[in-house]
């Protein structure tokens, strides 16, 4: 919380501030939390002045109430739904990836998380012509693959689409925090055209940077994790950006899949998708399951195929898909 300063309000003069500081009241939160009568006896400031200062500070630092209707309208005008480029996935997700929300893809190694990220990045950059910032923490993203996906996709096939994908390699949580802060600053400055059209932020994967600092006797790692998650949330909701991230899978007591990074991380993403193989080895088919969602019915699932074009499908609505949808609706 901010420290008390002269000029915050009319009654907060230099003398008052000095006497407050002598009494150990330095920040706004300390001022608001301390009992006024106690403060009056300690600092010899009039009760009336203290009440006035408190009132001003509360008004300055409290949140604004917003009406439901106006909030709804604001959401309608700022939220975009970014198509993933795969019609089945879009159908399942009710249109695609929402801006202002955190979407997490979890899966075992080699299940295709990075494929999904790269495909979505290419689709958003080429077909939707929006900017994407790709943060690669495991060195998994490759320019060649992005180009392959682009050439096999249905949208604009010029390589210039790739210049809409900003790319950063980061290897520790401090770099990630730093980058998120700088991205936020660059968006608010509105000077760089790249950042003003930024619609999708991909972090592949969060587990790779966070897991070395977590666990054991360290508490610092946990703080960084929550700090990063807060930055992601602020970035996504204040600047209406969709955040797509990947995470590992760990196994629960009964062998059921759980997202990595522990319990507190489970609450962070708004939507969580599980990618897993369909059982046969060597098959490129993957099942996508919705594990957590604020909007959709529970336990939706669909299957998609990894190919040279990533997960982008060229032939929409096959018979298999109809079957998949039937299965999904039956399960509901």
């Amino acid at each position: 919380m901010a420290p008390l300063k002269v000029g915050m309000c009319a009654a907060l003069t230099v003398e008052v501030l000095n006497s407050l500081q002598n009494a150990g009241v330095r920040t706004v939160s300390e001022f608001v939390c301390t009992d006024l009568e106690l403060m009056m006896t300690r600092c010899c400031v009039s009760y009336k002045d203290l009440v006035a200062i408190r009132k001003v500070l509360l008004v300055q630092y409290s949140a604004f109430p917003v009406g439901g209707t106006s909030w709804y309208e604001e959401i309608l005008s700022t939220t975009a739904i970014l198509s993933t480029g795969n019609s089945r996935l879009d159908d399942m997700l009710d249109g695609g990836i929402y801006t202002g929300a955190l979407t997490e893809v979890i899966g075992a190694s080699g299940s295709g998380k990075t494929q999904i990220c790269m495909s979505v990045a290419v689709h958003v950059a080429s077909s939707l012509q929006q900017n994407v910032l790709y943060m690669d923490t495991a060195g998994a993203c490759s320019g060649h693959k992005l180009q392959d996906i682009l050439h096999n996709s249905a949208g604009e096939r010029e390589s210039t689409a790739l210049s809409r994908i900003g790319f950063r390699r980061i290897f520790d949580p401090w770099q990630l925090l730093d980058l998120l802060q700088k991205t936020k600053a660059a968006i608010s400055k509105q000077t760089d055209p790249f950042y003003s059209k930024l619609k999708l932020l991909i972090v592949d994967s969060v587990a790779a940077v966070l897991s070395p600092t977590l666990g054991g006797q360290q508490t610092e790692g946990h703080a960084i994790m929550l700090n990063i998650s807060r930055q992601l949330k602020v970035l996504s909701s204040e600047h209406s950006i969709a955040v797509l991230m990947t995470n590992n899978v760990v196994h629960g007591e009964l062998g059921e899949p759980w997202p990595g990074l522990g319990r507190s991380w489970q609450h962070i993403p708004n939507t969580r998708l599980l990618v897993q193989g369909t059982g046969t080895t060597g098959s490129q088919e993957r099942q996508i399951l919705v594990l957590k969602t604020p909007r959709l019915p529970r336990c939706l699932s669909t299957t998609l195929t990894l190919s040279a074009a990533g997960i982008l499908d060229l032939h929409t609505h096959t018979s298999q898909e109809m079957q998949g949808q039937l299965e999904a609706s039956e399960r509901n």
Binding site: C141, S142, G143, L146, L162, F167, A186, T191, D192, F194
Partner: peptide
């Protein structure tokens, strides 16, 4: 030191196209 660094204007944004070139 962090504040004095302006948010990455000199290096610009490295794009996937640059990465492809490097690869």
């Amino acid at each position: 030191g962090d504040q004095k660094d302006p948010p990455s204007p000199d290096e610009g944004v490295k794009t996937a196209l640059d990465m492809l070139q490097e690869e």
